[in-house]
């Protein structure tokens, strides 16, 4: 029968065997058998097993040459596929314009140029959208617009691509300088407008005449007409003598007929002015929603 003392002896003998020490002196036959069992167990495990096909392949070739199924972590570094390079180009292309826009907006001196470029771009795309441009230009425009749309499919936002050390600011936070686009382009002279509008407020009559007819070929009847309306004595106007067909009589005594013409001319003048105002660009978009 096995006692507690036997257990302790067997454990000591077992540990001694594992440690390579000689068995305790108190070991009896049973304890020796336990130690012998341990030795026999080790003796049965001296030969390696037969590797299966997968392990044999692993032992023969290792993992260095096995690139058949790269992991998702290592796959991107294996090489640059055409799609990857295309996407990289798209990202560069996509980040170019926001960065350029931000720089232009942050540079106050260049704001006017940016606005002008924007106007040209809008006008050009608008014309392209309506198909007004020629075939070659239209095709080119369609390609560019299509490429720009394509770049917005799978590219990252500019915030992801811009590094911290870049001085480019976020376009969304840039305080856009208010650009007042005063169109000071001198209108092309037309005799009708000149005749209808007459000298503007504060303008010398002689300047009006010479500005309109620098070569001295003013319409004398029109000059006379406005001279009567403005109560200008044509004899006191410098350089008026070159104007053909001028009638300097009764310029200071407008008749009732002239008064009537004046009213008509005034209405015509206002009508022409409003007409020019109507040439403004109608770019408003109809995004309004009905309210109940």
């Amino acid at each position: 029968m096995t006692t507690a003392a036997d257990d302790t002896t067997d454990e000591a003998a077992f540990e001694a065997f594992l440690a390579g020490r000689p068995l305790p002196e108190e070991a009896d036959g049973g304890t020796s058998a336990v130690a012998a069992f341990a030795g026999a167990v080790r003796a049965t495990a001296t030969l390696p097993g037969r590797p299966n096909a997968a392990l044999a392949d692993l032992l023969a070739s290792g993992l260095l040459t096995d690139q058949s199924s790269p992991s998702t972590r290592t796959a991107p570094s294996a090489g640059s596929s055409p799609r990857r390079s295309r996407v990289r180009r798209r990202r560069r292309f996509a980040m170019f314009f926001p960065a350029l826009l931000a720089k232009l907006l942050s540079a106050g001196a260049v704001a006017q140029a940016a606005t002008g470029a924007g106007v040209v771009l809008v006008a050009f795309t608008g014309a392209g959208a309506t198909g007004v441009l020629g075939d070659n230009v239209q095709d080119t425009l369609s390609t560019v617009v299509g490429a720009a749309d394509e770049t917005t499919d799978d590219v990252t936002t500019p915030d992801e691509t811009l590094t911290a050390d870049e001085t480019t600011t976020d376009p969304g936070e840039v305080e856009v300088p208010e650009v007042v686009t005063e169109v000071t382009v001198e209108a092309e002279f037309t005799p009708e407008e000149w005749a209808a509008n007459g000298p503007v407020e504060g303008q010398k009559f002689s300047d009006w005449v010479h500005a309109a007819f620098p070569d001295g070929k003013a319409d004398g009847q029109v000059v006379s007409h406005w001279a009567r309306l403005k109560h200008v004595d044509l004899e006191e106007v410098d350089g008026i003598e070159d104007v053909e067909g001028i009638d300097d009589s009764d310029t200071n005594q407008p008749t009732a007929e002239v008064e009537a013409e004046t009213e008509d001319a005034g209405e015509d003048s206002r009508g022409n002015g409003n007409g020019h105002g109507g040439h403004g660009n109608g770019n408003g978009n109809g995004n309004g929603r009905g309210h109940n």
Partner: peptide, 22 residues
């Protein structure tokens, strides 16, 4: 992933592992 290192480890550990399983 060197094959020779796999071989070394396998020859060192496989007998006892296979014996354990057996």
């Amino acid at each position: 992933g060197a094959a020779w290192a796999f071989e070394v480890l396998y020859r060192s550990l496989s007998p006892s592992v296979t014996g354990y399983l057996r």
